[in-house]
Design a protein around this nucleic acid. Sequence first.
DNA 1: AAAAGCACTGCTTATTTAAACAGTATTTAT
DNA 2: ATAAATACTGTTTAAATAAGCAGTGCTTTT
Lengths: 204, 204
Amino acid sequence: MEKLTKRQNQVFEFIREAVAASGMPPTVAEIAVAMGVSSTNGIRGHLQALARKGVIELVPNASRGIRLLDQSEAEAEPLGLPIVGQVAAGSPILAQEHIEDHCRVDNDTFHPAADYLLRVKGESMRDAGIYDGDLLAVHRTSTANNGQIVVVRIEDEVTVKRLQIKGHMAYLHPENPDFDVINVNMKKQALDIEGVAVGVLRRL
Amino acid sequence: MEKLTKRQNQVFEFIREAVAASGMPPTVAEIAVAMGVSSTNGIRGHLQALARKGVIELVPNASRGIRLLDQSEAEAEPLGLPIVGQVAAGSPILAQEHIEDHCRVDNDTFHPAADYLLRVKGESMRDAGIYDGDLLAVHRTSTANNGQIVVVRIEDEVTVKRLQIKGHMAYLHPENPDFDVINVNMKKQALDIEGVAVGVLRRL
DNA sequence: AAAAGCACTGCTTATTTAAACAGTATTTAT
DNA sequence: ATAAATACTGTTTAAATAAGCAGTGCTTTT
């Protein structure tokens, strides 16, 4: 960005202060008075220079037609919760390569607190209001109660289902009649609970 | 604070949107065009009413002399998005008394950005994956396209439906066969679009 | 040394804009 | 029932405002 002259900077600062103070941009005449300049034309040059240098935009023939363009420095923003996409077989859910993005959602939005957002694949939980592409807020835990929607890993596959445990059998219920219940004999097969669902976030 | 009429609310909303979009308040004539009113005088009355009710301040003889007051959550970033519950007839959706709570969700999680979260009542949008108690992320706007899920005000009632406009008829489609389509003849009944749904947030 | 840019004065003109006047019809409150 | 507030149409006027023209010094760059 081209540098402003000292005077241009004064004019720019005045415009910013005026907008902050009164909620509307100043007129050219108001700037002239504030700058101690007797002609509005003395200011017009500055405005055109500011517009050319990209810090403001001038709206032709509009009163107070000065638009501040924010070239605000990117502030150090908290990353928020990681969005986890496809999980490769055998690797931890929160491995770096699974993190598609971040979403600035406060983790205490949910109870218990969410640790990450899992992008849901498929329609198997449709009737629970969880659709393909939704972000499922997940609280990491290795224990869950019957009836909770859980993120589980069976034979290196990660899936989301409603949990029911009876003795050594685990039944993973989909919420869609087109899908079958998955039966897991925990004496023969490993069933790892990765977390419980604590919320849903969908972008329309 | 004294409640606004429906029309006054529309005018107030437009001013807010205009300030946000262009960085300066609109002229009376611009508001008149946006409201579909042929005389600026039709708007002056609204502005004076809004000033009397304390939501704006009018600067005499100044072009664009409209100052938005009530900076409540204008820069209340740490609070996050307001959660709006039951909306009383005739008052702005974001009126203080409707705000149940806040949720620290970054508004650019959604596109376009969400302005507030509306707590959904009833099951009429169930098959769109929007359930009773869900928080609907809403972008404030007074215009929407066919097929979008919108927040509308009909006869002072606020409701969420899928929008379809054909000529002077508006059809508000529920997403649940147990509910009927609402037909609104816009020549007879006012239909005010309060915003479009941009996301869903559910706490399990 | 010349050219370009900066920072103005002073004046004029056209457009934008707020605001006032004079009405009408409808709704809401007393 | 009456008054007040709401929600306008249509026109006019004057103030506010942007923008153009023609200059004057001064400083910085080429």
